[in-house]
Simulated assay, not measured.
Amino acid sequence: MPELVLWDIDHTLMATRGLGGELWGEAFEQVTGVALREQASVTGATERVILKETARLHDVVYDETLFTRFADALGDVHVRRAAEMRKRGHALPGAGAVLAALADQGVRQSVVTGNVRRAAEVKLAVFGLNAYVRLDEGAYGEDGEGRPELLRAALERANVSPDGAVFLGDTPADVAGGREAGVRVVAVATGRTSASDLHAAGAHIVLEGLSHTDRVLAAIGA
Rank of each mutant, 00 (worst) to 15 (best):
P2F: 07
E3S: 14
V5W: 07
L6V: 10
L6S: 10
L6W: 06
L6Q: 11
W7V: 06
D10M: 05
H11A: 15
H11I: 00
M14C: 12
A15L: 09
R17L: 10
G21N: 14
G21Y: 13
L23H: 02
E26H: 04
A27L: 05
F28R: 00
F28K: 01
F28D: 02
A35E: 14
A35T: 14
S41K: 12
V42D: 03
T46V: 05
E47L: 02
E47C: 04
R48H: 08
V49T: 10
V49L: 12
L51H: 09
K52G: 03
E53V: 01
E53P: 01
L57G: 01
D59G: 06
V60T: 05
V61H: 14
T65Q: 14
L66I: 05
F67N: 08
T68K: 10
T68P: 00
F70H: 08
D72I: 08
A73P: 03
D76N: 13
D76P: 00
V77C: 06
H78P: 11
R81N: 15
E84C: 05
M85S: 07
R86G: 15
R86S: 14
R86T: 07
K87D: 15
H90T: 14
A91S: 14
A91V: 09
P93T: 10
G94I: 08
A95S: 15
G106K: 09
Q109A: 13
Q109F: 09
V111D: 05
R117W: 06
R118T: 14
V122S: 02
K123R: 05
V126H: 03
F127R: 04
L129W: 02
L129D: 07
R134S: 12
L135P: 04
E137C: 02
Y140V: 04
Y140L: 05
G141P: 04
G141V: 06
G141N: 03
D143L: 06
G144D: 07
P148L: 04
A153Y: 01
A154W: 03
A154D: 05
L155R: 06
L155D: 07
N159W: 03
V160T: 14
S161W: 01
D163A: 13
G164I: 04
A165L: 03
F167P: 03
F167T: 08
G169H: 03
P172R: 09
D174P: 06
D174N: 09
V175I: 08
V175M: 13
A176H: 15
G177V: 01
R179E: 10
R179W: 00
A181I: 10
A181M: 06
A181R: 07
V183K: 08
V185C: 02
A187G: 09
G191R: 07
S194F: 13
D197F: 00
L198C: 12
H204R: 13
H204P: 00
E208P: 12
L210G: 13
L210I: 12
S211I: 07
S211P: 00
S211L: 11
S211M: 00
H212C: 11
R215V: 15
V216Y: 13
A222D: 13
